[in-house]
Structures are given as structure tokens and as C-alpha cells.
Simulated assay, not measured.
Amino acid sequence: MSNTQIINSTIAHATVNQCAITYIRYKPVNKPPEKYIKSIQLDLFSQFVTNDKSEVSNTVEVWESIPKYFFTPKQVEKLRTKTGHADPYKMEFSYDGISCSVKIQPALIEQKEGGYKAFFPSVTEELVEEALKKYLTIQNYGIHDVNKAETWVRFSLSMIHRELKSRGRTRSRNEIKHAIEVMNKCNISLFKDKKEVWSGAILQDLVTVGREEYLADTDAHHVGRLPLFISHAINRLEYRQFNYDRLMSCDEQLSRFIYKKLINRYRHANLINNYHFMFSDLKNSGLLQQKRDIDNRRKVLSALDELKEKNIIANYDTHERKESRAINDVKYTIFPSNQFISEQKAANKRVNDTEKQVLDTKNIPLDTPR
């Protein structure tokens, strides 16, 4: 295949489609590259259309569509046995009309008092991952090997602590250290049509400092490999710019989930083009865990009210669909804020600028290995 064909193929596939859920398996590695790898793909991932790069980051829709951060302390406690262990948790969901399921094997973390306890990834792990993806866009903190489809991020506990604190999501260094351990030791298995297509940790092949080094220098760096989904997205331009600062300002997990959904699906937001989704669409997110649907619907309204408060949406309408007197679904129609419209236009310009830059650059095979 010629370079021109590869580039055209890249751009043609740089949108979300049903093939995006199928990935090639690669042999895992144990250590990050010893030498710096110059990566135009990572450079493109780090370029934004904005006046303030500190406010923006990237979303990878296919990876973030996999439910994994919905566990609450009460739910985890119910899943644990008397010994503190827990069986893997399975959940059905759909992605772009594809029938999928996810199996989450909890991390077994050794306790100070002895024994091991099971932990599933939850809200702190979600926030830490967002911080890591932000650091990936900053020079000298990311390493990407296009040929092996490997992406590494360098960080310290203090870096993440400062980042989360600056976004109003403060976590202690011990909480962050625990989250990193959970992200590294849990295992996510993804199934498409009941066939396993990927299995791995949220943060893989973690090279970390020991306790003595940590006590001596809380800024000592760790290096972790991010999931193949992110590497694949970097290789094929399948990511999207969004307002990271606004995301981190949202208090509710469901608000952040809906916001990401709007970023990836409501790409041409304007004042005469609204967007809608169904209550049933949200039920496979794992974030609606109330026993009664009436309480889950109230939770959706609370999330939408927060998005309105954060100036992400201007307003919303609800339309209940009933059978007799029972509500069997609800349609939510979203009207965007002017600020959200501007941010989506900037994200679209970034896509166009990136594609033009690829076409203007010769001998750059922006594609995953075969």
C-alpha cells in the first residue's frame, strides 16, 4: 500500500464506526522503551485548537464507552465475600448498535492488617485516568510507538495530586497510590457478540518506585502503559478534543458520562440542531443503580441540571413514553449552550487541521500494524 493510500485510509477511518470495537491483539511488553521515540502521531494528539491548552484534553469514545467506573462502596461491599474477595462482575452493554459485554475482575490489594481485599475501579480511578490522559498530551510525559501500538505515560503521585487539586477533585497521595494499584491489578475483558476481543488492565505494565524511594522523593516518576484502545486511537486519529476543565468541574459521574456522550455524538451542535437520547440508553452505563426507575430518572434530571449549571447545555426537554400508565422510557432533548457550540466548532476545526497536516506530510504511515 502506498503512503497516499495509507493516509487516505487513516482519514476514512478517523470516525467512530462499528469496526472500532474490534482490535488486533499485540504481545504485551514489560518495560517502557529505553530511548525516546519521536512520534508525529503523539504530536498530533497533543495539538489543540484553543487559547489555553491547560483546559483541553482528548476523549477516546470506544474506550470510554466500556462501563468500568460505576461501582459504589455499598455495591462493592455486597459483592465481597466474608474473606474480602469478590468474583468478577459481568455487564451487558451496546456500542454503536453492537451487542457487547464487559467482565471486570477486581484487584486484590494486600491490607496492612493482613490478608487481601477486592477493589473494583470507581470514581477515583476515573479521575486519575483523566489526569493521566491529560499528562499524555504534555511534552516529555508521553511515549508512543506507532509500530507496536504502545503508549506510555510518565507521572508521579505528587503530579496527579496537584493536578486533581487544581481541578477541585483533591485526593490524598495514598488515595492516588491505591487507585493506581487498582488500575494496574484489575482486569477488564471485553466481549463482542459473546466472543472475547480484548483483555487487559486500565494501566498496564506499571513500572513503579518502591516504598523507600517514594518516602525519599514523592516526585519520583512511575511509568505505565495505557490500553491498546488509546494507542489505536492515536494511530488512527480516532479521538476528539473537549473541555477537560469543564468535565472535571462536574460533581456527578453521570454528568461526566453524558457530557462525554455529547462531545462524541453531538459534533455539529448549533442553536437549530438539537440532540436527543433515551433513558434506556443510559441504563447500560452502570451509573443508574437505584432499585426504582423513578429514582433513576430523578438522577438523570439531576445530572442534566448540573450540565445546565456548568453551561454545557442551555436547556433540555423530557418526553415520557408510556404503556397504559407505566413509563417505559423517556426521551431527553438537549439544547446546547453557546459555549458548548464554540467548543465543538473548535474540536471540528482541530479534526480538519489534523487531516490537512497529515495530507501535507509525506511518508507518515498513520495506521495500526497488520
Results as ranks from 00 to 15, higher is better:
residue 205 D to H: 05
residue 336 P to L: 00
residue 212 E to N: 04
residue 316 Y to G: 04
residue 352 N to W: 02
residue 75 Q to F: 09
residue 302 S to F: 09
residue 66 I to T: 07
residue 135 Y to C: 01
residue 358 V to R: 10
residue 291 K to T: 15
residue 39 S to K: 03
residue 90 K to V: 14
residue 12 A to C: 07
residue 190 L to P: 02
residue 175 E to D: 00
residue 233 A to I: 04
residue 56 V to T: 04
residue 125 E to C: 00
residue 100 C to W: 00
residue 314 A to S: 14
residue 358 V to D: 00
residue 314 A to T: 07
residue 106 P to A: 09
residue 307 L to Y: 04
residue 33 P to V: 13
residue 356 K to W: 03
residue 163 E to F: 07
residue 14 A to E: 12
residue 77 E to K: 12
residue 276 H to Y: 09
residue 219 D to G: 10
residue 366 L to S: 06
residue 111 Q to H: 09
residue 201 A to I: 01
residue 17 N to G: 04
residue 203 L to R: 00
residue 78 K to F: 04
residue 200 G to R: 00
residue 49 V to T: 13
residue 253 Q to K: 15
residue 300 V to I: 09
residue 125 E to K: 03
residue 36 Y to K: 15
residue 124 T to D: 12
residue 307 L to P: 01
residue 302 S to W: 04
residue 354 T to E: 10
residue 99 S to C: 07
residue 360 D to L: 13
residue 174 N to D: 13
residue 309 E to R: 15
residue 214 Y to A: 11
residue 319 H to I: 10
residue 266 Y to H: 07
residue 219 D to E: 08
residue 238 E to I: 08
residue 94 S to Q: 12
residue 76 V to G: 02
residue 254 L to C: 03
residue 218 T to S: 14
residue 169 R to P: 02
residue 99 S to W: 09
residue 65 S to D: 12
residue 157 L to S: 12
residue 177 K to W: 05
residue 196 E to H: 04
residue 342 S to K: 11
residue 191 F to E: 03
residue 282 L to Q: 04
residue 131 A to D: 01
residue 129 E to C: 01
residue 79 L to T: 10
residue 18 Q to C: 03
residue 289 Q to S: 13
residue 63 W to H: 08
residue 68 K to S: 11
residue 305 D to W: 09
residue 220 A to D: 01
residue 8 N to R: 13
residue 17 N to P: 06
residue 67 P to C: 06
residue 289 Q to M: 12
residue 44 L to D: 10
residue 250 C to A: 06
residue 113 E to F: 11
residue 82 K to E: 11
residue 147 N to W: 08
residue 90 K to H: 07
residue 216 A to L: 08
residue 351 V to Y: 12
residue 166 S to K: 06
residue 8 N to G: 13
residue 165 K to E: 13
residue 181 E to L: 12
residue 257 F to S: 11
residue 148 K to H: 07
residue 308 K to N: 08
residue 87 D to N: 11
residue 302 S to K: 09
residue 110 E to K: 09
residue 140 N to A: 10
residue 295 D to Y: 10
residue 162 R to V: 05
residue 85 H to F: 06
residue 354 T to V: 08
residue 343 E to D: 02
